[in-house]
Write a protein that binds this DNA or RNA. Structure first.
Length: 544
RNA sequence: UGGGGUAUCGCCAAGCGGUAAGGCACAAGACUUUGACUCUUGCACUCGGUAGUUCGAAUCUACCUACCCCAGCCA
């Protein structure tokens, strides 16, 4: 095992130390989602850490559906998770389901009972809560804490044999009700539930708790490093307790290491809220472009590599952070800049007439698909006497640093002519109706060299596409027409299905830089307040 | 007032006793038939605070302060 790897974060450093100290031969990690929702960008960070860490050490990663709670899980989400992993380009070594471990887990519980380290408790949920103590006060022992091994064994068998109702009994680990760490105060490790499990049906009516199941699953699979988020730090003592006390665990014990989960500014990552948005009909679905789900990012035109690059850039640490979306945008922009097809587009059009160009005439103008790539082909755009240009590419009273079209000013139409605007035609209300311009055919001879180059479209030949705009309160999106693409590009198979152009983060000063499939989201901010879901910038903290 | 964590540039984040990496963002200049891209330059005498140890501290010690997580028969 190569321990001469340069660590790029504290987890890798810990693994290197483990390799040296414990003589681990191969690093094995696992990605253990619960199949109860679509994966979001936060899952991707975890995936990257799990898969990429193992990969770096030439180990492997298992995929495990952590389905120990029958009430919220479904096969549908299993598929969604799998396809997301594949889409990102990760490959798991083995696929497991926690629900496949139920027999093993049951045996582990029995082993604990036989050692007198677990007992069946008759306390109700309320009573358990009341006797657990508080953050500052110790808990009280359950009156059922000292049942005999035989009685416990019999009752646990009865629990499994469906002799009790939901909540009537639980199996608890016998640890220490006075432990300063609340997780160690005789945690429940099995509960009774008569809900139908999506894979096991009604075979079981008792289900193991996460804290009990997870370490055993890890150990069973030979996981060397169990990477999870910070909120499980408090659970690590319990994780280790289970591994140390269940005698069915043999061999090297996995080590749990925690990292800070991703918080992306302007959105919410809580699965509960996302579920609520979908189920409450506030958004169109899990792939609604306003959602932080992978499906939504995919729909907005983000590529797997750009999202993975984002995860690499934000790094892995233990401090709670709020990552700004501009980092993600920089990743996709960088990638698209290298390979995106360039087209001219006008989002907010203003009409211009070229008065010294025959109205029956058209010309085919060649524009490079990507000027950055010398081998890229060109596409044809049709030029005519009636054009659209971007409204903000014309200013009546420009400042000194405005290089685009102005009254009596010159500008270059990309790939075509240099024009001069000689008349601004307004309607009764004083709004600009159109501009009259003329082509300067002999610009070169006259030595006219405009500083600005702008996008344009032929009014008769461009194609309208649709974009979506959202209001402040999440509602059904209002569909309106606004963007336009040149027709030639739409005949190109790549953009045949363009439903929208996304200048989001891309329209930096001047012309639109890229056009890609997706939705236009105007300052989307997902948040929740007073039981309503808003698009405004309201932090989750404020909404509590 | 319990336990577990975290504090380094606007946002991420290296750093592990030898005198503050990098990315994003931002600013200035050069180039330019996308005001983009690219290039060049600038951007923490300072590491939550205060003491202390040391020739030397972001790194060690002590004491403060702020924020996050934990009292589901969720994960």
């Amino acid at each position: 095992m190569d321990s001469n790897i340069t660590p790029s974060n504290f987890i890798e450093q810990a693994i290197i130390d483990d390799i040296k100290e414990k003589g681990i031969k191969q690093i094995v990690t696992r990605f253990p989602p619960e199949p109860n929702g679509y994966p979001h960008i936060g899952h991707v960070k975890a995936m990257c850490i799990d898969f990429l860490t193992a990969e770096k050490f030439k180990g492997y990663t298992n995929l495990r559906m952590d389905d120990t709670n029958p009430s919220k899980e479904s096969e549908h989400f299993v598929k969604a998770l799998q396809s997301a992993i594949k889409w990102l380009g990760f490959r798991w070594k083995k696929m497991y389901y926690a629900s496949d471990y139920y027999d093993f887990l049951f045996d582990c519980a029995v082993d604990l009972i036989k050692q007198g380290k677990a007992y069946v408790c008759d306390l109700s949920a309320e009573e358990i809560s009341a006797t657990r103590g508080t953050l500052t006060e110790p808990g009280k022992n359950s009156p059922y804490r000292n049942r005999s091994v035989e009685e416990n064994l019999q009752m646990f068998m009865d629990m499994r044999a469906d002799k009790y109702k939901d909540g009537e009994k639980t199996l608890r680990a016998k640890i220490d009700m006075k432990h300063p760490n609340i997780n160690m105060r005789d945690p429940i490790i099995y509960r009774i539930s008569h809900e139908t499990h999506y894979r096991q049906g009604n075979k079981w009516c008792i289900y193991p708790m996460y804290d009990f199941a997870h370490p055993l699953e890890d150990a069973h699979e030979g996981i060397t490093h169990s990477l999870c988020s910070l909120e499980f730090e408090d659970h690590r003592p319990l994780y280790n307790w289970v591994l140390e006390n269940v005698r069915l665990v043999t061999g090297l014990k996995p080590r749990q290491i925690e990292f800070a989960r991703l918080n992306l500014d302007g959105t919410i990552m809580s699965k509960r809220y996302l579920r609520e948005l979908v189920e409450g009909g506030y958004v169109d679905g899990w792939d609604d472009p306003r959602m932080p789900t992978l499906e939504a990012f995919k729909r907005r035109g983000y590529t797997p590599s750009s999202i993975k690059e984002f995860c690499t850039r934000i790094g892995v640490a233990k401090s709670n952070s709020l990552v700004q979306p501009h980092i993600l945008e920089a990743c996709i922009r960088e990638e698209l800049n290298k390979n995106a097809l360039r087209v001219m587009a006008v989002v907010d059009p203003i009409k211009i007439n070229i008065t010294n160009y025959d109205e029956k005439r058209t010309e085919k103008v060649l524009v490079s698909n990507n000027p950055l790539d010398p081998k890229s082909k060109k596409h044809t755009v049709i030029f005519s006497n009636e054009l659209f240009i971007e409204r903000e590419d014309f200013i009546e009273k420009p400042g000194a640093k405005f290089f685009r079209l102005t009254p009596n000013g010159y500008v270059r139409l990309m790939g075509a002519y240099i024009i001069k605007c000689y008349e601004v035609v307004k309607d009764e209300l004083g709004n600009i109706d159109h501009l009259n311009c003329s082509i300067i055919y002999d610009a070169k001879e006259q030595g006219i060299k405009p500083k600005g180059t702008i996008h344009w479209l032929s009014r008769k030949h461009c194609k309208q596409i649709r974009t979506r705009k959202f209001g402040n309160l999440l509602k059904e999106g209002e569909v309106f027409e606004s963007g336009m693409l040149d027709k030639i590009v739409n005949s190109n198979s790549m953009t045949e299905n363009v439903s929208y152009i996304e200048p989001f983060g891309f329209k930096q000063k001047g012309n639109l830089q890229f056009v890609r499939m997706g939705y236009y989201i105007e300052d989307s901010k997902l948040s929740k307040k007073d039981d309503k879901i808003y698009l405004e910038t309201v932090s989750l903290k404020d909404s509590k």
